[in-house]
């Protein structure tokens, strides 16, 4: 049995769903960030898979996109972790449930 486009897409969708679940269900700020990273990487997998299988004059665009996603995700993670440090200084917690000065 050969590995086809569908297999990559299914793995990508599963990873994306797991990431989304983590991002919504976890209470620790850092764990939520890990869920978001997982979502980004599911996207990367999908892009690379499409890049490999799609019939297109410039199929490498998918790879280029992945490089952009990785770079931007790093910038976003850096900002998020700086914010986590700031929150811990001000509020002594990074539990998302206990950060509730503003009513939801």
């Amino acid at each position: 049995m050969s590995v086809n486009l569908e297999h990559y897409l299914i793995v990508g969708a599963v990873l994306f769903s797991v990431g989304l679940y983590l991002a919504l269900a976890k209470r620790n700020f850092v764990a939520v960030l890990m869920g978001i990273e997982l979502m980004f990487n599911a996207v990367n997998l999908t892009f690379v898979a499409f890049s490999r299988f799609v019939r297109s004059p410039n199929p490498l665009d998918g790879h280029v996109f992945v490089v952009f996603v990785i770079t931007v995700a790093a910038a976003e993670a850096a900002t998020a972790l700086a914010l986590a440090v700031l929150l811990y200084r001000v509020r002594d917690t990074i539990n998302v449930d206990r950060i509730d000065l503003l009513k939801w």
Partner: peptide, 9 residues
């Protein structure tokens, strides 16, 4: 910082 946390996530 709480607003930023919610906005960022």
């Amino acid at each position: 910082s709480e607003a930023a946390l919610k906005y960022l996530l």
